[in-house]
Design a protein around this nucleic acid. Structure first.
Lengths: 343, 343
DNA sequence: GACCGTTTTTGGACCGGTCCAAACGACGTC
DNA sequence: GACGTCGTTTGGACCGGTCCAAAAACGGTC
């Protein structure tokens, strides 16, 4: 038989369900059943199929499966900024849980893609992801709202946006702030100030601080300096607090970064921490764990939050219609080197 | 309107290429041609098709396309640790470039998945990614070797493993170390020590340091304390260096984290930086940029490295057979607050 | 051995695109 | 008017799985 000239020279395609079937002497449908772990396959046939798979080195084709199953076993994770170490912690809990349930994770940094003019939310929808997790406060919540009733969605690490069928998993900011403030009060501080932050988390932490103060009869000593949650912002707020007449003996800062700024300000103004001034941060980022800083801080259980977000998403995928739920993880105080009783 | 809420109802599947064809009054093949931007479609038909797509809100089905095209337009990125801020920088450059070329990016943290017993490399192969980028030194290079001749692969941010058809994009570690050391020598330091790090990068940086010392006739003053590149490791190495008889007046540390450790050690031992001791780190992570630390350090151009890695991958996808290339980006010294002339 | 109810197994129609050979239509030429 | 050419358009066979109704195999009864 004279073989045709321009044959594409047999690139030996990877084995498919049919090659496996042929080798095992069964039909492709049976192979498919084995693949999906159906209980109604006779043990000997199952063994034969499994052996054939192994011999051929068979690996299922994900694209084909998604096409016919109409789902991708993939969830999209929308980050607002990978540079924030807290989110990385959360991501750890999130992906661990999702992977354990057989889902792939597609990561997208919203900040990055917005810069190159791409709407990541749309991309995820195009990819037909089975679910979406929005991590942190997103720059453009409207896109999320639009997509949330077509695709199961949860928000992790933030309390907004609050949408009809979108679950929320976050740390209990109010409780964390209360714990931090009470730690300072318990040490004997009466004049405790707060460096505030932005957004809903900022409000909640501020609220927790004020609540703790009031509960201990210190309503009159409440003092809040706003900041933007950056090192620079924390620095400036601390300078304002420490430069005036009535100096606080302790400061609870919105987050670790602002707290580091406050630490710098204290050093520059000649205050020794914790002898002259106690400082508490929030988030227990790896900054706080540097020996050189060694901040007392509130651990807001990022791993837990991620875990819970994953759990919520799995439940929502199973039952997309159920009402939205809010899960708050309990933060834990981490006492290190920046707090002590007042002089 | 009585809100009867969640009916399964609405069987209206998303529009396909055929619904578009029907609406535009053409065949599905023509729609496919328009979709792929073929030049051989008459303008009026093209317009009709585009209008129909818009009216129906058509979005192509990625799974179907990959199945028939036999490629996914997706690349897998294998990270060894998301917690390392340097990689995030690199990732930024990498994903920006890849997205701009129409490729999706699947992120996988090798550290995470290994913990849950998943071989991420295999997962990527199963997903039929069009390419793989390994970022940083991987824990298990053998898996990569195995996969590299089936799937286009590049290594970014590390110099190993060196494999037959795998391109490498990294910072020029030797040059960076030389620059840092020369900066110290130029300031007048004669006794410059080095806190070493692990792996090939560790060797290269150490080599650059020694080379610079030799070039300035300081071969006898070479002194290297090994470390594991952590804060703790940097701390211990610095204690050893500063505790002995012949104390150096300057230290070049393997990376910023170890440098922070050295900073702590210096403070504890009563050395004021930079008056009594100059310190230089490496990587210009955001640690170095904290005002409270303000490290002089070497910026190893993470964004550039990522960019180049993406470029290499695109070229390798286009021509998988070509020989491996190595691209080194030029690091830049970032002078901040931890270096000064010796007393 | 015929009959019936359960397992098991199987063929074939999808899923929504791409690709290619063949069909079509308009036009110029003999 | 038949014929060839070239630029467009089209039908149908893939891609590699899932799913389901129907067929086959099996076991027990009468």
């Amino acid at each position: 038989m004279p073989d045709a000239v321009d044959r594409p020279a047999e690139p030996s395609r990877p084995p498919t369900i049919r090659s496996v079937a042929e080798r095992a002497g069964v039909s492709k449908s049976l192979v498919s059943l084995v693949l999906r772990g159906s209980p109604q396959v006779r043990p000997e046939k199952r063994r034969a199929v499994l052996r054939a798979m192994k011999e051929l080195g068979y690996r299922p084709n994900v694209a084909a499966r998604s096409l016919s199953e109409r789902r991708t076993r993939t969830v999209g994770v929308l980050l607002n900024d990978l540079r924030n170490p807290w989110f990385v912690e959360l991501l750890d809990g999130l992906t661990t849980m999702l992977r354990a349930n057989g889902l792939h994770v597609l990561l997208g940094d919203g900040y990055l893609s917005r810069r190159i003019g791409e709407d990541l939310t749309r991309t995820f929808v195009d990819l037909r992801v089975d679910g979406i997790v929005a991590v942190g406060t997103l720059p453009d919540p409207s896109a999320l709202a639009e997509v949330a009733d077509r695709t199961p969605t949860v928000v992790a690490g933030a309390r907004e946006p609050a949408l009809p069928r979108v679950d929320i998993a976050a740390g209990d900011d109010g409780l964390g702030a209360r714990t931090a403030t009470e730690h300072l009060i318990d040490l004997g501080h009466r004049s405790v100030a707060h460096i505030g932050g932005r957004g809903l988390a900022g409000e909640l932490r501020r609220g927790g601080y004020e609540e703790a103060m009031r509960a201990h009869g210190l309503a009159d000593a409440v003092r809040v300096e706003p900041s933007d949650g950056t090192e620079e912002g924390g620095y400036r707020a601390a300078v304002r607090l420490l430069g005036g007449r009535e100096r606080p003996t302790a400061i609870f800062a919105y987050n670790d970064i602002a707290c580091v700024g406050a630490l710098t300000a204290a050093a520059e103004l000649g205050f020794e921490v914790p002898r002259d001034l106690s400082l508490v941060g929030h988030d227990n980022t790896y900054l706080a764990r540097l020996r050189h800083l060694w901040l007392t801080t509130v651990d807001n259980a990022g791993y837990d939050v991620g875990h819970q977000a994953a759990r919520s998403l799995l439940e929502r995928i199973a039952d997309p219609g159920r009402p939205a739920e809010v899960h708050l993880s309990t933060p834990v105080l981490e006492v290190r080197g920046t707090t002590a009783p007042p002089r």
